[in-house]
Simulated scan of single mutants.
Amino acid sequence: MDRRTFVKATGVAGIAGLAGCSGGPSGGSDTETTEPSGDEADDGDDDGMETTAAETTESGPAANIGMVYATGGLGDGSFNDQAQQGVQDAEEDLNIAFNEAQPDEVAQFSTFQQQFAQSTDPNYDLVCCIGFLQADALSETAADYPDQNFMLVDAAVDPSNVANYVFKEHEGSYLAGLMASLLTTRDFSAGAGSTSGDSTSVGFVGGVESDLIRKFQAGFEAGVAAGNEDVDVSTNYTGSFNDPAAGREAATAMYNSGADIVYHASGNTGTGVFQAAQEEGKFAIGVDRDQSITKPSYADVILGSMVKRVDTAVYNSIEAVVNDNFQGGSAVQLGLEEEGVALVYGDSLGSEIPEDVADEVATARDEIIAGDISVPSTPQ
């Protein structure tokens, strides 16, 4: 999908940007890392902030962008890295400059949001807030800085200077559940994993239990039931998006209890799920990015990934800044129809997926888009 032309939901007025921003590309895209400057460091706490700026002509970058990532940080091969891909693509295509902040805990979201909003060197044209856990802090920050424009991923807040992007994770998770159900009830071997054929259990590992992550669980459970109503789903919320040891422990318990396949929606915690799959000779399903590529050492057990185009949301919000068409207070919904979510098969194992399974998953995708299948967004 071309991230510059993805379809917005019906009734959405527009995508995030900033009125008053000027210009298109004015220079190259080579980057360098510097320390934060200006009011970003007013409180003396600039840990986790890095600046990446494109080489520009005297006119400067087309826009300055602040990125506040979710807890778990960069390098997760999943949610945060997908968001970073969006701003990096915008840097290359649109000649913007950006600064990154990696909070270690929820309490730091407000600090970083305010540092970007207060900064005068540079002035930030847009602050991208990645993850639903930022919503409470952003509701207050956006109200306190009404002239600063923000975008938020995975939640929606009221201030008119915030553009919100939410995804239909349950739709993509349904396809993951359907695939898991169809495979666990047959003898199937590929890469380093296998199913026993007589399994009646698959697993779901979540990070922080919340309405958002329960959408993943709900869709997965519905897809599993559609494939075979006799297959149960074991669920474990670890309470963290950055605890691979907890993910490994949770998944190992599921595999030892008879599950052949575990799907995770837990950020970097999911790395532990992949570790457990390899150790037990079973399978896993990744999330947010194609994790068979971002976590290549586990590609031999990753059947597929439920990808979520956070990069698209970030890119288009920045493009709107550059194009001078900001409209805050909007909520963009992205599902299967808008290509905001999808099930992609693993880079190593995808060719091994039986044709009848792939065909049934493809049919289900079409039926969801057509409205013939209604996927629940809360667990039943």
Rank of each mutant, 00 (worst) to 15 (best):
T269A: 01
L343P: 12
D136H: 09
S330K: 06
A90W: 15
V307D: 05
S22T: 12
E352S: 15
Y345F: 11
D42A: 15
P122L: 01
G350I: 01
S78G: 08
N228K: 10
S351T: 07
G219C: 03
D89I: 10
A250T: 09
M151E: 11
S37K: 14
G247N: 03
A97Q: 14
N228D: 15
G27M: 08
G223K: 10
A142W: 09
L178R: 01
S110H: 08
E91L: 14
F116A: 00
A277T: 07
T200L: 09
G350V: 02
Q115F: 01
E171N: 03
A192L: 11
S189H: 04
K8R: 14
E360S: 14
V301I: 13
R309D: 02
N236M: 06
G335Y: 07
V231F: 02
A53G: 13
S194M: 10
Y174F: 15
P103I: 09
D288V: 09
V361M: 08
P146L: 02
S181F: 10
I285L: 10
T200S: 14
G197Q: 12
F204Q: 12
V205W: 03
A62T: 13
A259W: 11
F6Q: 09
T10W: 07
Q115E: 14
F326H: 14
I353V: 12
D243G: 01
V321R: 11
A83D: 04
V157S: 04
P354S: 15
V202R: 10
A156N: 03
E229L: 02
V357P: 06
S257V: 00
N242K: 12
V344A: 11
V375R: 00
A342W: 07
S29K: 09
L175T: 02
Y345V: 01
A107F: 00
A41S: 14
G177M: 02
G346F: 06
A225G: 03
Q114E: 14
T235E: 14
I368E: 00
V375Y: 02
N236T: 14
S377T: 05
T51S: 15
L138T: 06
Y263A: 06
M67L: 14
T52K: 14
